[in-house]
Simulated scan of single mutants.
Amino acid sequence: MHKLRPGVSQTLSLTVTPEYTAHAMGNTGVHVLGTPAIVLKMEDVSSRILASYLEPGETSVGTIVNIQHIGPAKTGDLVVFRSFVTSVERNRVQFHCTAEAENGQVLAHGTHERAVILTERVDP
Results as ranks from 00 to 15, higher is better:
L33F: 04
L54D: 08
R121S: 11
K41V: 02
Y20E: 02
T119F: 01
F95I: 08
T119G: 06
L50K: 11
H23V: 09
G62D: 01
V61M: 12
L50M: 11
T15W: 02
E113N: 04
A22D: 13
A24Y: 05
V93M: 02
D123W: 09
V16I: 14
S83V: 03
Q105Y: 00
I64K: 09
V30E: 03
L107D: 04
L118H: 13
H23K: 15
S60M: 09
S52Q: 12
E102V: 13
R90C: 01
N27R: 08
T98Y: 02
G57C: 10
D77Y: 14
Q94C: 09
I67R: 03
G57L: 06
S9N: 03
D123H: 07
Q105L: 11
T21A: 11
T15V: 15
F95C: 08
R90Y: 03
P36A: 05
S46I: 07
A73Y: 08
G26C: 13
E100Y: 00
K3E: 00
N91V: 04
E19P: 15
I117W: 06
V79Y: 03
A101M: 08
L107P: 15
G26Q: 07
V116G: 04
G76L: 09
E43K: 06
L54H: 09
D123T: 15
P56K: 05
E113T: 10
T111L: 00
T28K: 14
T11L: 08
